[in-house]
Design a protein around this nucleic acid. Structure first.
Lengths: 354, 354
DNA sequence: CTGTTAGCGCATTCAA
DNA sequence: TTGAATGCGCTAACAG
């Protein structure tokens, strides 16, 4: 029954330690530490350096990050809290963050809340326990003041311990944040439709407690008002930030307001669902009967048919910037990086009929 | 210039330690440890327990995971190495893994190699340094024996230290693996096309050094042979596992072999590109002129137009199973979980013309 | 340039 | 049930 190369192993056969490497190289622990983990400064002689390196190689030494973290009181781990890694929006942000992290030799610990409200707090706490050097809050803020309050406390605690926090999207004035132009994007979308002749424009929105949704919607409304749009009762339907949520909301919207000639959907994943709903559930042609604009410009947006006109957000760049902010030692002032939005016209929009 | 709530902070104001909690509660360090981190066993009296909990709460104690990891010689961190988090294939796997990790109260450290060959090894090493309790290798294995060899060594070392490794997709007979039915899927795709009357079937493949590609292709070829397909020179074009790679390869393929009536594209992301290439670059109607089958059934596959017929793989389940294997203490025998593939017929395939 | 020493925060024997 | 003591692997003064 025994394998040639047996896979049995006690909990932890322990690994090779720095001490062992030092002994083997005939130097002190400190010297071994200096050559193997020393911060650049060539403060060790050629000969000893060589011996330590040889010993490490020979013994297949692997450093112990937790021990280092303990001794140094700081780690090279950064946390990234998202709603859902499978969502292309967060996938793109995560990709950007990981690319930047690689350059800085940081490891990324990702936590997904799966949109469960309390989990963000819980994960921030876990990341704090891990002594992550910093945490990126990639998900949207919320109008739930109670939750926001508690999160703020946790953030303050984390920062008091020397950790850093960067938010993607506004969460509060005294936090470092990378802000994408959600308001401006909402405005651009509406103006784009307006220029195509659309006057009755509806909106399919995500959960109204999300700040991101609020901002996008706000931008759209402001633009509408600025354009002198009829002060009709708002044509806004809300759904989950998912494909099915978008589908259902779009169907509801156009059933209630068949006079609409255009719909702004506040995220591409929902827009994919909206396109399906309009076509399959309602038999409405896009863009001939109704134009559709999405938000985010996730990778598949251009592959939908009709190709989705959408507000492009620099998602990967946001992830990269967040990591950059993390490392850039800040003074007393909170930092802020603003990233632009840009309307990308594709096939899902057309001039208003009539 | 100073802020009301000043954001200045020394490198690490240190956090509250267990020792402090113990002192505040008037108990020993050991007792505090037992109530706050104790493994279930109610080994501490009501009274003391209460006092410790109160002190922890009051002091806002946050445990120090690196210190625990050091003392216990084991952590609650698992690593997940993928090619690209923004790729929906890996996004889905990651989502499954994170869901399972949550149930087990594990933290997930994700590393993305961005398809750079050497990085997998490097990250495995880093994860080993982090003393991750286990690592999931989600990317495909390779035919590069040199690299495979070195990776195997690293894995062996990691396991010798008590770490566990699970591969998604075959990498070797003595490794725990979650295998998705790539061969079977390739066969099903071909048989599906055959039943629709297609006899001249081409393949758009990913990088030929990837085992995943090999297996899918192998399954397709086997099926073709079994069906008595003409032993024509292979109609296979290779490209990157990306949208653009798929587009270019599909265009090349149909330029070289305009007689083909169907194309199997070995992954959905490439298939999206292929659809675009056939339509926009070559003006070939799908499915009327040529049928297209993808692989994976990523979320957007059904939203492409025509909706993509594809081989569905249980991606999320694979991620979940991998975590499950990780925790399930194994005996000496390597484990293996086989997950099925299933052809999903949608609009991108049609009966062969003529 | 190199070695000695004293912790980092915690889990865990071992005694009491 | 509780506490005292030891060490996990490493870094960072501090001395030489």
């Amino acid at each position: 029954m025994a394998n040639p190369r047996s896979r049995t192993r006690p909990a932890h056969t322990a690994g090779v330690t720095l001490q062992q490497v030092a002994r083997q190289a005939g130097v002190s622990l400190a010297t071994a530490s200096r050559v193997l983990h020393g911060s650049g400064a060539r403060t060790v002689g050629e000969e000893l350096r060589r011996r330590v390196e040889a010993a490490a190689e020979e013994l297949r030494y692997v450093s112990n990050a937790p021990a280092q973290a303990l001794a140094r009181a700081t780690s090279n781990v950064v946390g990234l809290i998202v709603h859902d890694v499978a969502d292309p929006y967060f996938g793109a942000i995560a990709a950007g963050a990981m690319r930047a992290a690689r350059e800085q030799r940081l490891m990324v610990m990702i936590a997904a809340t799966f949109r469960e409200p309390g989990l963000e707090l819980e994960y921030l706490r876990s990341l704090r326990a891990q002594r992550a050097r910093a945490v990126i809050l990639a998900g949207s803020g919320t109008t739930d003041t109670e939750a926001t309050e508690r999160l703020a406390e946790e953030i303050a605690g984390f920062e008091a311990d020397g950790g850093r926090v960067v938010c993607i999207g506004d969460r509060g004035p005294d936090l470092d944040t990378v802000a994408m132009a959600n308001r401006s994007g909402g405005g651009q979308a509406v103006r784009g439709l307006w220029e195509l002749g659309h006057r009755r424009i509806g909106v399919v929105a995500g959960p109204s407690e999300l700040l991101t949704v609020r901002h996008r919607l706000d931008g759209a409304r402001r633009a509408l008002r600025g354009l002198g749009a009829p002060a009709a009762p708002d044509a806004v339907e809300t759904g989950d930030f998912t494909r099915e949520g978008g589908r259902a909301a779009a169907v509801r919207l156009l059933r209630a307001r068949p006079d609409l000639t255009a719909v702004l959907v506040l995220n591409d994943v929902m827009a994919a669902g909206a396109l399906a709903g309009l076509r399959d559930d309602l038999g409405l042609a896009v863009p001939d009967r109704v134009s559709v604009v999405g938000f985010d410009d996730v990778p598949f947006a251009a592959d939908l048919r009709p190709a989705l006109t959408t507000v492009r957000l620099p998602l990967e760049a946001a992830g990269e910037e967040a990591v950059r902010l993390l490392l850039d030692p800040s003074g007393d002032e909170p930092r802020r990086v603003d990233l632009p939005a840009e309307l990308v016209l594709r096939g899902s929009t057309a001039p208003a009929a009539g």
